[in-house]
Every structure is written in structure tokens, then in C-alpha cells.
Design a protein around this nucleic acid. Structure first.
Lengths: 234, 234
DNA sequence: TGCGCGGGTATCGTATACGATTTCGGATAC
DNA sequence: GTATCCGAAATCGTATACGATACCCGCGCA
């Protein structure tokens, strides 16, 4: 038995189910609204329904899954209002985290962030067409470098939980609004400049809020081209 | 069968267990570190262990309970660092929520908030000694009036989840540091003034952050009188 | 043709049962 | 007297079983 197998065996089945389902949701193998049938999942994982139910309860508490008595579980579907609210919450929390992280960021972190952002810039105009998924992955990486340096662990947890909640739709934005990608890269540069020159925390926080809000705004104006700006901003 | 009973019967046992345990934690009937034995709770509630396990898993996901494989569940115990981090997160999120809520607060809301705060001031110097618990209840009420008006529902959810997480220790602060209560009442007044005169959002947000941070600071200096200020503030 | 109505099936909710793991106390050796 | 080991008791983890509920579909009736 390998080390990995030993470790896996040590994990409870309910934990395995939890991770398995969460992974599929993150992957988009289970898309919003998808029905999670206890028996089917249990069979697929070679376990009984009990651990699967527990896993689903946990996911429900995290907001990734909705659960209805005597009906079943579905991958959570965020309507537009909820999505906007969640995105704004993420924006506010992440901005604070990055502002707190800024003074502790090492030159090496900044260098890595710049590398990622340069890579993002490079794939903006590729020979074979823009790849929104690749861009999104890099974008996430860029943000993570910044907020993960935050000394407040709880904020990091909250950011990542919210990030997971938004999961699905979040990724599609650069597919819908490729112009926003270009703008994002510029804003990333500006943000790194602010951090590098040790700008005051409130400036960094503000820049970060505007950056996230801009992305949300872009998505909203795309889905409702007729409606005016309506972000209740801070 | 009464209406209430019908409704109760319609709820799943796992939901009842969830609420029952959560209530006890909020009550301090189950204090941090208290061991939650599945069988005992199940017997007390007249159900089997399965629903109780589910309930505990949900509470674990919310951070109110810790769970260790093959060992059992305990009411979550926050060490000081975690507590500070969580409190700071609450401070940041609530400040944003109140800043967003401020423009929408009706004169009636403000009047109610003032009433609560006046009540808090009254019980600062009572004939029979200061009652920190009563003060805490009013304090919570005061804060809730403000942040509940926030148009962003998700922020409200996050605030209340964090509030529940902090639950236990949070309440004891005014018992430890009664002077902070006096200061709190003054800050509440100042905050209401800002809101009433429609101060810019960032001023309200800042005042709110300082208010919460001040309370945390008071608690920290109380538990470590020798140590200097060390709040990584925004 | 359209609309209830009833029954069958899929799925959920929970109890019970039992093997697995940890914990704790006592016996034994030093 | 202290440390260590062993076994019993407590508790956890999960499978299985079965009643309860909701959903689907076809039938009868208007």
C-alpha cells in the first residue's frame, strides 16, 4: 500500500465524498442546477448514502449546494442579484485583505505577480484567438498571490469560500467581455505599482475595490446593455 | 395538533438537531471545548445518531464546532489569534455594510438606534451594579439596526455568521473591560451623528472600523496589559 | 381534447446494527 | 512509586433496511 493510499484510507468516506463533489462543482462537471442524487453518487463512490448526505450538508452550509427536504440536492444556482451581492462582498473583503497584505509583500512576490500579469497580457492577442479559460486561471493566480500574503487568516478563508461560491459564473465573464480582460491587465499593473511604492493602505484598498467592481460592472452591462450603472459602490 | 406542532413535525430531525445545538452554543449552555457526544444528544432529542451527525457537520462547516475523525465533536474554541482575526474580519465587513446602509436608513431607524443607545447609557451606572450581559444584548441590537439596512444581503449573512462564530468570548468583553462600554456609547452617538448628517460613505466606514477595532483593542490590552498596541489596522 | 385522479416508482429520511477506533483504567514489571 | 502494556467500555463510521414523501404517467371523465 502506497503512502497516498494509506492517507486516503485514513480519510472518512464522508470527507472523500465532500471533496469529490466539490471538485466536480469547481470543474463545471456539475453545473448549477444539476441534481445530486444521493444513491447515484454513493454508488459511484462505492459507499452508502450516509456519508454522501453528510457531505452534501456541509456543501449546503457553504452555499455550494441547495437542499430541499424530501426533494433532493442541487448545485446552487445564483440568480443575478445574489451573484452581484456575493461579488461585491468578495470585492470588499479582498480589497481589505490586499491592503493589509501590501506592506508584507516581498519583492519576490511582486516579481511573481508581474510575471503572471505579463503572461496574461501576452495571451490577450494570441495567434489562435483569445482563451478566456486560460486567462481566468492566471487571473485567479494573480489575485491569490496578493491576498494570500494577508496576515489575517480568516480573511483569506472568507475570500476563498466566497470565490468558490461564485465559481461557475465567475469564470465566464472574460468569455463574454474580452475587452474587460485588457482593462484588467492594466489595472493589475497599476495595483502592483501602488504596492511597490508603498502607497497608503486606503489607496491600495480603493484600487482593489475599483478593480473588482469594474469587472462586475462589465458583466452587468453585458447582460443588461440597456440599463444604467447601478453599482452601490463604496 | 397545533399549528406550531404541525410546523415542527414538518421539519426534518436533522434540522431540529441543528437548531437545538446551535441554540445551546449561543446560550453558553454548551461552552467552547464542550464535547458533543452523538449518542447522548440523539437520546436527548429522541432521535437516532444519523440526523445528529448531519447537524454537526453543518455546524462544523459554519465554524461553530470542530470535528475530529474517530474522536468526536467539540464546541469550537477560538485561540486568541483566531479570535482577533475573526473580529477584525467582522469589523471590516460590518463597516462596509453600515456604510452602504447609511443612505437608506430611515429617520425611524435612527430614532430606534438612539433609543437603544440611550438605554445602554442609562444602564452604565445603575444602582445595583453594571450588568454586562444586558449591555451586550443592547449593543448587538444597536449594531443590527444599522447593518440590517444594508442593501447587500450577502454582507448581512456574512456578518451574522461571523457574529455567531465569535459568540462566546464576544459577550464577555464588557464584563472584563467595563470602561470600554462607556466609550462604546459615545462612539455610537458619534456614528449616528455621521449617518444623520449624511456624511460620505468612507467616513462612516472608517468610524465603524475604529469602533470595532477599539473594542477588540480594549480586550487585547486587558488580557495582555504589558503588550503594546498591535492591531494591524486599516 | 383537456383536466383531475390514482397508483407505481424513484428517492429521500431515519432507525438499527455492527465493525473499527479511541480512550481509559487497572494490572504488572521494574 | 512510576511507567508500560493490555483489555474492556465508550464512541465513532458506515451499511443496510424500511417507512414516508414527492414526482411521473396513464386512465377515466367531462
Amino acid at each position: 500500500m502506497t503512502e497516498a493510499e494509506t492517507k486516503a484510507a485514513k480519510q472518512s468516506k464522508s470527507q472523500r465524498a465532500y471533496q469529490w463533489i466539490k471538485e466536480r462543482i469547481a470543474n463545471h462537471q456539475f453545473t448549477p442546477g444539476y441534481r445530486l442524487v444521493l444513491g447515484t453518487i454513493a454508488a459511484e463512490l462505492g459507499m452508502s448514502v450516509v456519508p454522501v448526505r453528510e457531505a452534501i450538508r456541509q456543501l449546503e452550509a457553504e452555499g455550494l449546494v441547495t437542499f430541499e427536504r424530501n426533494v433532493g440536492a442541487h448545485v446552487a444556482m445564483l440568480d443575478e442579484d445574489r451573484y452581484s451581492a456575493s461579488m461585491q462582498a468578495l470585492s470588499l473583503i479582498e480589497a481589505a485583505a490586499v491592503a493589509l497584505a501590501a506592506p508584507t509583500l516581498k519583492p519576490d512576490d511582486l516579481r511573481r505577480a508581474r510575471e503572471v500579469n505579463d503572461h496574461m497580457r501576452e495571451i490577450l492577442d494570441p495567434p489562435l484567438g483569445f482563451d478566456p479559460h486560460a486567462f481566468t486561471v492566471l487571473n485567479q493566480k494573480f489575485h491569490a498571490i496578493l491576498y494570500r500574503a494577508c496576515p489575517n487568516r480568516r480573511l483569506i478563508e472568507l475570500i476563498e469560500a466566497e470565490w468558490a461560491r461564485l465559481g461557475n459564473m465567475r469564470d465566464s465573464i472574460f468569455a463574454f467581455v474580452p475587452d474587460r480582460a485588457r482593462e484588467s491587465v492594466r489595472e493589475h499593473d497599476a495595483l502592483l505599482d501602488l504596492i511597490e511604492r508603498r502607497a497608503p493602505a486606503h489607496e491600495i484598498e480603493h484600487a482593489m475595490r475599483r478593480h473588482r467592481a469594474g469587472t462586475l460592472q462589465a458583466l452587468l452591462s453585458h447582460t443588461h446593455p440597456d440599463q444604467p450603472v447601478r453599482l452601490p459602490d463604496l
